[in-house]
Amino acid sequence: MSKPKLAIFDFACCEGCQLQIVNMEEEILNLISIVNPVQWREAMSEESDEYDIVLIEGSITRPEDEERLRRIREKAKVLVALGACAAGGGVNRLKNTLNLQEAKETVYGTAANMPHLNTSSTKAVDEVVAVDYKVYGCPIDRREFAYIVRCLALGKTPEIPGYPVCVECKLKENVCRYEYREICLGPLTRAGCGARCPSLNTWCFGCRGSIEEPNIDSAKEVVSKYGKTLKDLENRIALFGSK
């Protein structure tokens, strides 16, 4: 059996998720032993239009990018949204809370009306094309990524946590951030990062995106009990556009 061909494409994002693939360090040699990278602009000059697995990094913010993405989807057998930007819109989703014209003026001042600055709202990849798998996190977790690639090579659906960060946080035996009166989004956020932020003595701000059926009503009750306002909660939730 020949190795599946892998291509990586990036859209509006910080390219930090691709960097995590480089950050696999020695294991990148293992990675290329089971998949064959044929196109990866950030790291390679080789190019190819033939690929089996496509990783899409970044969120989609312009009509021309939607076009490009559709062309990629047509050729891809398996399409994976890589990282928060691709999987849910990521931090770029904050833009959707803004008035676009004002945002342009804020950033570009008098140049704001130049046509090449036009963008639409931020979309996750699955708002444009069908997505087969999602790798969560901002950035992605390289161990989880490695696991997912192995699953894909094996033809198995990866088992990604659907439960909230609190689970991993408890397993790590952290002192809960609510005891410090911080707004932690752990109860609303998909686990898989090993409760990284609470383990580093700070709140989770939701970079792995929302779990299914997050209990926002409860979060509202909780923050008011800890002397915080609804706005504090909403502001934190807005960072990664969780539900």
Partner: peptide
């Protein structure tokens, strides 16, 4: 109504013991 479904009450409990089982392959597949 206020439950986060976060499982904390299970996980910290000295008499709860449910577990999940998963496989992972090495790079040699």
């Amino acid at each position: 109504k206020l439950c986060f479904s976060c499982g904390s009450c299970n996980l910290v409990c000295p008499t709860c013991y449910c577990f999940d089982v998963q496989d992972d392959l090495n790079w040699d597949m």
